[in-house]
Design a binder for these strands. Structure first.
Lengths: 171, 171
DNA sequence: TTCTAATTGAAAATGATTCTCATTACTAGT
DNA sequence: ACTAGTAATGAGAATCATTTTCAATTAGAA
């Protein structure tokens, strides 16, 4: 299995949902400093230079980043940011659903800015490649199940695991 | 969120899928020592008294147990079993899909003997209650998605999070 | 500007998981 | 049943992500 295989590669190559495009990030729009401040205020948090920098770096960087990776990136820009701050802020943003936590297997938690279009993940357990996909049918059925048991859904985690095309051919 | 709420209860009350019944465990059949040995051999592991005891205890006990809890239970019966053994064996069984790992939020991993009828979990983020459900439609759509991207699926994780009926009324 | 509570960074604490290694115990082959 | 070869074991140490602590600093309301 993925989580027990120390030989898998470490990149988290991401295949964008069909239709794919050439964007580096989902967020083609750029965020001004005011945008960033707005987002922080909406979380009922005070605006600090650290938080602005962290959020900005998260937005500009690639998706699926770990707290450690984000910390290192931010460090290079301004060493007046501690790991605890990055970590705490990520947690806070996760609570406010500004970012989404991805826990795949037993690897360190990765974060992504919550995309406007919800998607789920399919991971190749051989090479670690992550494919993102959307499927309204699945969502609909989830709601049905929730209703059946009287639950009011807040969110969900759907992760498919398997072997991707190229790994199937290799082996 | 669940994982940040230190006030949620710690029991993992489980609601069986409709139609429910009065069984303590999914496994009404009892396992003889030979059954246990067979299962261990099928995993290409040697039969040892520790593994027999661990598997037996897992089978008799409630579902959704942590490595620590299982270790404590097994300890009471035979103190010649170390935590490492329990832990390693659980990992091994997870790899062979004899048990399934449940990672809900950031709480310690829980294990359950992989039920013959696959099911997923819906968790109340207020009280921690776990409902198990089956839904063939969702599974079918998952396969469709996988085929679309050329993946051969091995397994998946689907966890719904929300507020259960009684917690909705409380608040 | 002043005050207060929120935020911060560094380091230590925690907690789960994983590894190490000397010892013991399976089991296949006799 | 005996034995060699290998797998498994337990205790504890190591690792790693995550979380907390706390004294110093800072944001932002009044």
């Amino acid at each position: 299995m993925f989580e027990h295989n120390s030989r898998h590669n470490n990149n988290d190559e991401t295949v964008l949902p069909i239709p794919s495009n050439n964007e580096t990030s989902y967020f083609d729009e750029s965020w001004t400093e005011d945008d960033l401040k707005q987002i922080i205020r909406k979380m009922n948090l005070k605006v600090t230079p650290q938080r602005i920098l962290i959020l900005q770096t998260l937005h500009e960087g690639r998706v699926h980043i770990t707290a450690q990776e984000l910390y290192e990136k931010v460090q290079k820009i301004n060493s007046d940011v501690g790991f605890a701050t990055v970590y705490r802020f990520l947690k806070g943003m996760a609570e406010s659903r500004v970012v989404t936590e991805l826990r795949m297997g037993s690897m360190p938690t990765r974060y992504e800015l919550t995309p406007k279009k919800h998607h789920d993940h399919m991971t190749c357990t051989a090479c670690g490649k992550i494919v993102e996909f959307q499927n309204k049918n699945i969502e609909d059925h989830q709601e049905k199940v929730a209703k059946q048991y009287g639950f009011k859904l807040t969110h969900h985690v759907l992760e498919l695991y398997g072997i991707c095309t190229s790994c199937q051919m290799k082996k």
